[in-house]
Computed example of a mutant assay.
Amino acid sequence: MDNPWNTHYHYFDQKKHPPAATLRNAIALSQKLQINPQNRLAVDLGCGNGVDTFALLQDKWNVLAIDKQNEALLRIKENTPDTYKQQLQLRLNSFENIDTLPDSQLINATFSLPFCHPDHFDTLWAIIISSITEKGIFSGHFFGTNDAWSSNPEMTFHTEKQIKTMFNRFDLIHCKEIEKQGKTISGKEKYWHVFHIVAQKK
């Protein structure tokens, strides 16, 4: 049976989707901070099809792209122009097995963190928090408890109160909670409950 993520990557290859709005907002915020180019390290957690990774490379970030699917990393490696290859590191790892991250000025997690097993989420989040430097930025998404997938015991879901507690060491630059009926990549109907976050560490 084909890996369902292959279908996901193929879909995005065909659609040429732009980077996530949360990441675009985070990049705009980082540009105002005038970070020293030598210190511009971003981590793309669950980098998937690489759209966000490429956006960061184009903005002159050094990027550590992490994914548990080797197929994803191979696609990024193959599709990265030579101009950007020295800026890029690739790491094959699942969220559950991440035990450290480098000091980073930006951590991006577009629709990926909900797929961390709940038994490991708190540990992963503590690692993320500690690796973001002072004034550093987080951009990403979390699924709310009303999401149609919330009965999946392998995934992690949050309430608004939990989200605010998680970001108590940050200024929430953008925090939008959206609930709506929609579709998955495969076209199936689904009720979405998603928190869209951009935050800056105090």
Rank of each mutant, 00 (worst) to 15 (best):
N62G: 00
S150N: 11
K176S: 13
L57G: 02
I173G: 01
G48P: 08
W125S: 09
F157I: 07
E78H: 13
Q86G: 09
F111G: 00
K60C: 05
N25Q: 15
H120C: 12
S94N: 03
A72I: 01
K180P: 00
H10F: 10
D52M: 01
A65Q: 01
N97H: 14
P153Q: 05
D13R: 11
V198F: 07
M155W: 10
S130I: 10
L23W: 00
T22G: 04
S104R: 02
I66R: 00
N79I: 01
K190F: 10
L64S: 02
E189N: 14
E160C: 08
I163R: 04
N25R: 15
K180L: 11
H141D: 01
Q86V: 11
K180N: 12
I137G: 05
H10R: 10
I98D: 02
E71F: 01
I128F: 08
A148W: 06
D44T: 06
K190C: 01
S139L: 05
D99I: 14
Q89E: 15
L57Q: 03
N152R: 10
D119R: 11
L33Q: 15
E78Y: 09
T159L: 06
G182I: 09
N93E: 15
I132W: 07
F95Q: 03
P114G: 03
V194C: 06
H17E: 11
T100F: 13
T159F: 11
D122V: 09
P18M: 05
Y84C: 08
H120Q: 11
K202A: 11
F12L: 07
V51T: 14
H117C: 05
Q200E: 12
K16Y: 06
A199G: 09
G48H: 03
G46F: 06
N168P: 01
A148I: 07
D147E: 07
D171K: 14
F167Q: 09
L92N: 09
L23R: 00
F54P: 00
E71P: 00
N39K: 14
L33P: 00
D44Q: 08
E96R: 06
K77L: 14
D171R: 14
D82P: 08
Q14K: 13
K164E: 12
S151I: 10
N97K: 13
T100M: 12
L90M: 06
L73E: 02
R169N: 15
S130T: 15
F195D: 03
I137F: 06
L45Q: 06
D52Q: 04
I137W: 02
T22C: 09
S94P: 02
R24I: 09
F12P: 02
